[in-house]
């Protein structure tokens, strides 16, 4: 058995030490309780964040079946089709492809500097009428390749 912890007198400069100390039992159990609360919060946020169907993003082919669109926010991911990116006022229009199907995306919001044609991207938003995906959060999905800008000499 560990002898009960006795609190030593601390210098009065730190204001939080002037409060009455928590009971020993509470003090010992507080860390695990906090971890438990954090785990519950993470679980809840992750569940709502990953969203319906428990996939992080849908493919354009999966979205093609839903013309009216499944209700609520979702993500769609694929390769940005070459020659499909056009600026439209403050919005950006482009097509995402998974090699089989494509989806048209109308994005309003910040565009990551690494975003370009032929690269992977994930757009977050809602599927609007006409199968146009209205995105307000655009993320670049880069590959697992790392290369120098110029070929090594």
């Amino acid at each position: 058995m560990i002898p009960p912890r006795r609190r030593l007198r601390r210098p009065p400069s730190a204001p939080w030490t002037r409060r009455r100390p928590l009971p020993d039992r509470v003090r010992r159990r507080l860390p695990l309780l906090l971890v438990g609360v954090a785990a519950l919060a993470l679980g809840a946020l992750a569940f709502s964040g990953i969203g319906d169907g428990m996939v992080y993003y849908r493919t354009p082919t999966e979205l093609a079946g839903h013309d009216a669109g499944p209700a609520g926010r979702l993500r769609v991911g694929g390769l940005v089709l070459p020659h499909s990116v056009r600026a439209e006022g403050d919005a950006l229009r482009f097509r995402l492809s998974d090699g089989v199907g494509t989806v048209e995306v109308l994005h309003r919001g910040e565009v990551p500097p690494v975003f370009r044609e032929g690269q992977g991207a994930v757009a977050e938003g809602v599927l609007g009428p006409g199968g146009v995906f209205r995105s307000d959060r655009l993320m670049v999905k880069h590959s697992d390749e790392y290369r120098a800008a110029e070929p090594a000499r």
């Binding site: 993470l42 946020l45 990953i50 969203g51 992080y56 990551p112």
Partner: peptide
């Protein structure tokens, strides 16, 4: 932030890493 464009997203790898931390 500079490459994906976001600080955080509820991607399975990110969630799993937080779960590992917990």
């Amino acid at each position: 932030r500079p490459v994906w464009g976001v600080w955080w997203t509820w991607d399975p790898r990110l969630v799993a890493t937080l779960a590992m931390l917990l």
